[in-house]
Design a protein around this nucleic acid. Structure first.
Lengths: 214, 214
DNA sequence: TAGATTGTTAATCGATTAACAATC
DNA sequence: TAGATTGTTAATCGATTAACAATC
């Protein structure tokens, strides 16, 4: 036994590639509804806003087979992206904090369409516990750790208040969560085997304000 | 007169740098509350999760003055980041779509603390129009274009349904918005002078699921 | 075949990391 | 002074772009 405490197989795709692929997926699923069965790298690049060369490079990494002189089958491409990103494996997710943001995510994010399953919503407020949100009963956050283990949950969206963010993150870590989408303004302290993606909304505004100039 | 239709001064900081700086800012504002007045590049790197070298490189770009052998004054650093990112200039923002996500943003995002001002919330649903959210009355989306011009709005968060996303985006463009935070699952078609930041929540889940392995 | 577009390698560009002199 | 840490340049690394042969 090696002495490393936690591990996951190194992803074979670079982060920027993964980001683009997930966005291509949404675009292609929309594109399929227009009736077009084939798309060229330059068409996809026009829609996404990058270059045909980058699109081909990304698709090349997937070992997807297009047809020279014609383009890519949209259906095949969608399937390949889904398979490569692991969307067939049934990732279980939970939401912690059922305020406006938490319940917005529960109700609007189409987990089921992307091979994910929302396995629980937790809050500490007695007025909120027991409410039905997106077909689930909001549970008491004290059952969080047990639920993560019993329901094989790998990802959590953290939508609690700023002040309880670290405390809840500690619970998630102790229950061996694999990844946290952090929507709180607090920067979380977690061991390196838990991956945190910081998604503070105010940061998006700050960043966009900067690039838009003033 | 040049024939380019719209312009903004090219930002002098690279996008990855801007992203990190906005996150450093939140960290430092928190750090200041711990009573520490000085922080070293390696301390900040430990908290953020990168290297001291990168932190120094980022701060170098700001032309911030630290003190060799001691570290950086947290207060000075906060001020420099705020000034450099343009947070003193009073950016006006609006939210379009006042469902759960739109109202969560209105109520939880601390615009005022970052030199921004929420100037309006719009919806098309008569049951929602007129509601008070975050101190503002939700307005009819038909007044959107006029409001953007009259209130000098530069950024909009788009939180409408999937199906009306492009239509509303077109209104924003025609009113000469500068940037759009797109929370809808639709990829928007806008002229290149309008900057769109795609923030589809499902994509964050897909990306995190991938890097967490399966 | 001719035209179009992919598949794939090589070149370029930009961001990160390393190194260390400067100096508090 | 000695120790620590910044400021800044140079080296490395990785991602994007260019190029073009392959081939449908």
């Amino acid at each position: 036994m090696s002495k490393k405490k936690c591990s996951f197989s190194k992803p074979s795709l670079a982060w920027p590639t993964v980001q683009r692929l997930s966005e291509y997926l949404l675009i292609l699923e929309h594109y399929i509804n227009t009736g077009n069965e084939v798309i060229s790298s330059s068409e996809l690049a026009d829609i996404y806003g990058n270059t045909a060369s980058q699109v081909r490079q990304d698709i090349f990494r997937l070992q997807n087979t297009g047809r020279m002189g014609h383009g890519y089958s949209v259906k095949t491409l969608v399937n390949t992206i889904r398979r490569t990103l692991g969307l067939e494996t049934g990732t279980n997710v939970i939401i912690v904090g059922c305020g406006k943001l938490g319940s917005a995510i529960a109700e609007h994010v189409p987990f089921n369409s992307y091979g994910m399953s929302l396995k629980g919503i937790f809050d500490k407020d007695p007025d909120i516990i027991g409410n039905r949100v997106s077909g689930l009963k909001v549970e008491n956050v004290q059952f969080l750790t047990k639920a993560i283990k019993n329901r094989a949950v790998s990802l959590a969206a953290l939508c609690v208040t700023h002040s309880s963010a670290q405390e809840v993150a500690d619970m998630l870590v102790s229950a061996k969560i694999r990844g946290i989408l952090n929507y709180t303004r607090k920067h979380l302290k977690v061991p390196s085997c838990v991956i945190v993606q910081d998604l503070q909304i105010i940061c998006s505004f700050i960043q966009l304000a900067y690039v838009c100039g003033n």
